[in-house]
């Protein structure tokens, strides 16, 4: 009997010790007294790349004809005057700048400018091409020829405003550029016309000016009187001596 009881107690103690050991395993590992170096675990095995699911083919649309070469834009043109306000007789200068910002050339480029009646052209210059001015129509035409990609052409028109200006109506002018494929653009400029002289703001002499004139008249009278008196005395003496 005693043997059985002692055996049971022994087994129980062993069991308890085993449980305690199992519970303390984590505590022992975390204890600074027991530095445990964790060995790195192996990286997870990469997942196999999934095979792409077959996509549905799009319904073919009408076939588009691809354009051969780049898209052609219009030439660029700008026109400015050197004055914003000018009166009759003022020297006026226009500058027209034409540029080709495309990657292909423009052929047979022409700039036309119908000059206003109040502007008398004195000269025109262009860095390329020739120009012609028709007096009857007042159309000034610059034949520039071929403009290569990236090329810029400058045109200068010099002249003078004449008496046909009607202030304050602006003097407007439009320059148009085209090539033989009808690529066109235009640029307008406007110059405000102004009177040719400052306003007259005096309706006669002022009080000071009148005072000056009165004093001048008085002085003149005194001088005349003195001369007259002196002359009379001279005449009187000459008659008395006789």
């Amino acid at each position: 009997m005693r043997k059985l009881i002692s055996l049971a107690l022994t087994l129980g103690l062993l069991a308890a010790a085993g449980v305690a050991l199992w519970l303390d395993a984590g505590a022992v590992a975390a204890s600074p007294l027991f530095a445990v170096t964790e060995t790195p675990t192996a990286s997870s095995t990469p997942r196999p790349t999934p095979t792409p699911s077959p996509t549905s083919t799009a319904t073919p649309t009408a076939t588009e004809t691809a354009t051969a070469g780049p898209r052609i834009g219009d030439p660029l043109i700008s026109k400015v005057a050197n004055l914003r306000q000018a009166g009759a007789g003022a020297a006026l200068q226009y500058m027209i700048v034409v540029s080709n910002s495309n990657s292909s050339a423009f052929n047979n480029v022409v700039v036309t400018d119908t000059l206003p009646a109040s502007f008398d052209m004195l000269s025109a210059t262009t860095v390329q091409g020739t120009f012609l001015f028709v007096t009857d129509t007042r159309i000034l035409t610059f034949t520039l020829g071929v403009m290569q990609p990236g090329q810029v052409i400058t045109i200068i028109i010099q002249g003078r405003l004449n008496n046909k200006v009607q202030p304050p109506n602006p003097v407007k002018n439009v320059a148009i550029v085209c090539d033989d494929a009808n690529h066109c653009a235009q640029s307008a400029s406007a110059v405000t016309t102004i009177p040719g002289s400052l306003p007259v703001t005096g309706e006669g002499p002022g009080p000071n000016e009148i005072l000056v004139m009165v004093l001048a008249a008085l002085v003149s009278l005194v001088l005349l009187a003195a001369l007259g008196l002196g002359g009379w005395r001279v005449w009187r003496r000459s008659t008395v001596r006789r």
Binding site: D74, S78, V80, I176, C178, C184, Q186, S187
Partner: peptide, 14 residues
Amino acid sequence: CAQAPTPAGGPTLV
């Protein structure tokens, strides 16, 4: 000539 309208914002000055 076919007169194209001036681009929005005005022509570019060079």
